[in-house]
Amino acid sequence: MRRAYFKANWIAALLVAPQLLIIFVFFYWPASQALYWSLTLEQPWGGGNTWVGFENFRTLLSDAYYWNSVRVSFVFAIASTALAMSMALVLALFADRQLRGYKFFRVGMIWPYAIAAPAVGLAFRFVFNPHAGILSYINEVLPGFWDPTVNGTQAVIMVVVAGAWKSIAYNFIFFLAALQSIPRSLIEASAMDGAGPMRRMRDLQLPLIAPTFFFILVINITDSFTDSFGIVDVLTGGGPARATDLLVYKIYADGFRGFDYSGAAAQSVILMVLVMALTFVQFRYIERRVHYT
């Protein structure tokens, strides 16, 4: 790639300044503040703080509730990512087979991604309501069959489905675009070589969309750790019995309901490091295997 250089450095600085300013105000500043708080004991009503070193982290890591939250978060991340990606991929493969109005899909299908998480949560609260939702009919026949307000596993399923639904459309668009970018002649060549549709999918389409697959994987995993607050908050409030107490939700609950600012800050730092580590691992070990040219 050709790179252009500016002769005067101040022009370059001026051009990147707005972006830097935004990142600074909304990331570096709060992140460093959180880091500072996580190393102090912050008073809930203001009035100074005390330096405690890694005491907050020690407390957290010996807290069973916190480890429960970590476990639930991983279950949620893996399950919702798997569901969102597999559903999106299946839909995209179907759509790619015979497609007219691709542009319509692209615009029409992106909307769920644009809906705020609490709104999604609210919608699914109705859908999964044990008394009025779609499963309430089963409850009429088998009383108590479905009640996510009591059954923790069902609550997790509900949150996973709602979280996945929000990403499916987004994933679908990317998968479809990737499938559409595979030259038609490649598919035709493999048809001439005797491969049927399933075989073509396995040998050609999936390997060739691997870069997109990887990108979507990173986005989905990251999103499910950091962007699931609204859904949990509206659907379950972290319950029942902390069954859906995701890391990001626990930060909010401990910090703004429990007024444990320092503990919440420490959790934020851990979550941040975790997401960065996951992304790093994915880039380092998976991305390397998906490029073929």
């Binding site: 035709e188 060549a189 060739l208």
Partner: peptide, 10 residues
């Protein structure tokens, strides 16, 4: 068939 753009599996 031999295709114009070869259509090799990359």
């Amino acid at each position: 068939m031999v295709f114009q753009n070869y259509a090799l599996y990359p």
